[in-house]
Amino acid sequence: MEISMKINGAEVTHDVEPRTLLVHFVRENAGLRGTHWGCDTSNCGACVLWVDGTPTKSCTMLAASAAGHDITTVEGLEKDGKLDPIQQGFIECHGLQCGFCTPGMLMTGRWILDNNPKPSEEEIREGISGQLCRCTGYKNIVDSIHWAADHPAENEVSA
């Protein structure tokens, strides 16, 4: 079936099987490999992207269900060549090691701050509790999100 959706503002149309999962549509059909694909069982959060602004585990949503909706992936965080503060925070605070969990962490981190600009450590940890990181021990991820909260306009570094 033919499916169209907006991904990071651009209309994307492909003919896919109805069983195609959104994560595969985004990675294989739209060619945006920033969104990662890990556990496949809605447990790890590597595949988190936004559907109409709401973080969603894209391994557990059909592309067909996303048709007509607005998708934002990690590639959509950067604006006009400037990194989003959440991205900058992960650089400043060493918020990643292997980087596999990072796209999902960034999308959820940005969403946490959009709803709660000054979250406590506990609120951040609860917010990312559906996402696994096997490297950092989470400490630096929490610090990175805090850094972004403290520097809301600090997106001066070129991407």
């Binding site: 959060g45 973080p55 969603t56 509790s129 559906g130 996402q131």
Partner: peptide, 9 residues
């Protein structure tokens, strides 16, 4: 119940 992202769906 589950986690914040699952709860969105």
């Amino acid at each position: 119940i589950a986690d914040p992202i699952v709860r969105n769906k």
